[in-house]
Design a protein around this nucleic acid. Structure first.
Lengths: 342, 342
DNA sequence: TTGTAGGCGTTATCAG
DNA sequence: CTGATAACGCCTACAA
């Protein structure tokens, strides 16, 4: 209670500095700094005394001061559309781990659905003077690009492809993915199709490419059910209901913008006694953890998120550490994974 | 290509400082600082010139220098077990949004499964001199506690309850939750039960409390299926299979440590023609987005993650901004949500 | 309303 | 191997 607070205040000893550690170890502040950054430059005995002093005082270096002095923050900021979307969070984990093992910490923020917010977020992140920055997607305001360029740090745009990245780009083509799915469906003999798409620009690009190719290959006009807001299981169920009730679609294949929506369709179909893939076939997107475990197992599009995070990290690190120039844009592709739902 | 890189290097103008902005606007650096932190302390005309200069130069304040000078980083760090687990990420989103609207940014890291890593992570985070820190859970090494105490910043531990928090604690009792589920099951007339539990200390505490209470209420010995590693849909399916095959359980209620596992059980049961809740009843944990949309709709335990994030933020802010002392520990409780699976 | 001076805790650069 | 000393870019007094 109050007691606790008092105790804490008492303990809130003024922060221990290198100078204090040095005093205790009988050396100057600079020597402490050296002992920490390159122990080999300090005599064994001094090193020992410094380590003891650090242990005794509970010294934790002040990275803020270090960053200011060295002009290196060892901080990398990342902007993703949503942290609760597993697609992005698994990718970010991979990215983080690779950056962390190179000594960088990640400052993560959600950009959400409003692209207008991104600019302010970028500025806020830039004020922390990150050594590099990761952005999701390739659509950024002119002012955002200016800020980024002005910062003079490596920037990697992920999850999409462009011929004119701000700096680096690692991703895959959403149009290609849509087309690949259309071709897959066509080869499986489907001539009727529908799409269920969440409110996401990249998802819509996949949908458009899918529909265009499917129709070009002789398929009938592709029905569509669009969702506003993020994908949820219930939205998948609703979408199937709408498609069926509005009689715009009765048989064929449904291409969803995410595995979650596809899963919703599986559930709704099961309840209605619609057989999958007998009556209706379903294709998801993302190849989530659970895609192989739902029933029937979901045919979907796999994007290697771990590889994506790794490559993004590697390219950034190449810029940061070595002085070599990685390829500005790298296409990691995707893969249609056939299972039972189509 | 190389061209791009050259361009970037060219543009990487040495960082614009407040002094530079001031020079351009015909005022001193301090005035620029004031114009930014409290525009009312600067004359309208000066303000205009400064704003023009900022616009023209693309100046972005250096939060590093600001933090060093003011001894306030406006940074709050958060440690969660996993970012890909929606339970934590939704909570963190709520926390982040509340902190952000108060002007704080969040530095997020995953602690993962190895509690030994936590200590190093805490130290790494502390080196950024956060103004406050959020920790998941109440189990921290003695050294970790020392570090935290020594930092002299507000700390909030979430997702659990303890009578001796490091500083603040906002959460709920996992034992209480387990017991509440046992009572719920008992009132529904079940006398046989099993648990499916992921490798998580808190989940196991819920399980123990559930089993103890269930048996105390006259139920038969509770069967168990434990999973090592994180919860996945497939693990839920496997668990049901194991429970059935090993003949340790055939009818009754299954309490899962997460909705995901429960969902796996639903799927496996459907495939095997086991009726839910006719033959077997299922109770999840977490009340995820999809819990109401699976079939049958999942009975589960709801934890108000948004409220949790909000309260954690509020209590931290109380320490940070006002000088009043929030209650050291606040129990936000939980709620058994009855739907169709039990 | 504006400016000057000093300092925040490091790292970089020279000396010794 | 160790130590002065000068930045780093801003904020907090205190003055004008």
């Amino acid at each position: 209670m109050g007691q606790d607070r008092d105790t804490r205040s008492g303990i809130a000893n003024k922060r221990v500095t290198m100078a204090a550690v040095g005093r205790m170890a009988g050396v100057s502040q600079v020597t402490v700094s050296r002992a920490l950054s390159d122990p080999s430059k300090v005599s064994a005995d001094t090193l020992r005394r410094i380590r003891e002093a650090i242990e005794a005082t509970g010294f934790v270096p002040n990275a803020i001061a270090g960053a200011l002095a060295s002009n290196k923050s060892r901080l990398v900021t990342a902007l993703i559309p949503s942290i609760t979307n597993v697609v992005y969070s698994t990718f970010v984990r991979s990215f983080s781990e690779h950056m962390r093992s190179a000594g960088y910490q990640i400052l993560l923020s959600e950009t959400g659905f409003d692209p207008a917010d991104e600019e302010a977020l970028i500025a806020a992140h830039l004020s922390r003077r990150p050594d590099a920055m990761l952005l999701t997607g390739i659509q950024h305001s002119a002012q955002a690009r200016r800020l980024l360029l002005g910062a003079g740090i490596p920037v990697v745009e992920v999850w999409d492809l462009t011929s004119s990245p701000i700096d680096l780009c690692v991703g895959f083509s959403h149009s290609d993915a849509g087309r690949a799915v259309a071709e897959f469906a066509h080869h499986k003999g489907y001539t009727q199709a529908a799409t269920v798409t969440a409110a996401d620009e990249r998802a819509h690009r996949r949908r458009s490419a899918f529909a265009a190719r499917f129709e070009a290959l002789g398929g009938q006009r592709v029905a569509r059910a669009d969702i506003d807001g993020p994908a949820r299981l219930g939205e998948g169920r609703t979408a199937l209901r709408r498609l069926l009730d509005e009689k715009v679609f009765a048989r064929g294949v449904i291409f969803c913008s995410s595995d979650l929506l596809a899963h919703g369709i599986l559930i709704e179909a099961q309840i209605r006694g619609i057989r999958i893939p007998g009556d209706i076939a379903v294709i998801g997107f993302g190849d989530q953890d659970y895609a192989a475990d739902v029933h029937p197992a979901l045919t979907t599009v796999r994007v290697d998120r771990d590889a994506l995070g790794q490559r993004a990290a590697e390219h950034l690190l190449a810029r940061l550490e070595n002085n070599d120039t990685p390829d500005p844009v790298t296409d990691l592709g995707f893969e249609v994974v056939q299972r039972d739902s189509c």
